[in-house]
Amino acid sequence: MLTAVRNQIRISLLTTKYALVREMLNKATFFMNIVFMILNDASFIIQWVILYSIQDGIGGYNLKQVLLLWGLAAGTFGFSRFFFYRAFNLSEIINNGKLDSYLVQPKNVLLSVITSDVSTSALGDIFYAYIMAFIYKCSITNILLFTFFIITGGLILVSISVILSSLSFWFQKADMIAETGVSLMTSFATYPDGIFKGAVKILFYTLLPVGFVNYIPVGILSEFRLEYLILVFVVALFFIVLAFVVFYRGLHRYSSSNLMISKI
């Protein structure tokens, strides 16, 4: 069992490496993608700096906490799209019957598919995330905790995308649901949770778990609470397990295709 897990991780890392090598064939484009993503992320912060110059404290957050929130949002987004890029177009892969080559390999199908490509611009998000983390508080504990939340949050994002995309096994237009779900999570992740009330807030801790991806982690990084840290870990684990269950349930309904496909 342990060997199988180790071999699976080895393959996933090897695939990520080869996908990265492919992206780096054009070095200029590769670096431009990263730099422009950092600039793109930074441009949003300007709006917040202006807002905070008018009013101090929005939704219970000070400016540094907003920077941290953006750091976490960019970090989880970047981590999920760099290591698990194909989780975000899984619907298209299922609909077009592109799972065949993974199904004939003796590896975990879901992991093999979602790790089979990388997004280079996501590296820009990750770099940006750490710049924000350092601005917030430059300490080893802080950076370690921040990294932990990027991983748990990224994995929750990936899981949500896998769960929603797996609906494609049952009906065709599930790609729109997956796209909407993930983009809603990403959008809400950049606003202080204090501005949301009532039912929307419940949504953030259930169907669209932005709370566990961003809000609770911001709280823990501001004031450490072990029980919340454990809660985030357990919730991440829950969504990961759910993603595997839904995907493998759906896989029984996979219908493949005879399209001409090349691995690019």
């Binding site: 080869y18 090598v21 492919r22 064939l25 065949d100 080559s101 004939v104 390999q105 003796p106 005879n258 399209l259 001409m260 496909i261 090349s262 691995k263 690019i264």
Partner: peptide, 18 residues
């Protein structure tokens, strides 16, 4: 999967940049 091999003429399995 450890015991069988597959070649689908219409679907490439190889990484083209490697």
């Amino acid at each position: 999967a450890y015991e069988i091999g597959t070649v689908f003429g219409q679907k490439e399995q190889l990484w083209t940049h490697l």
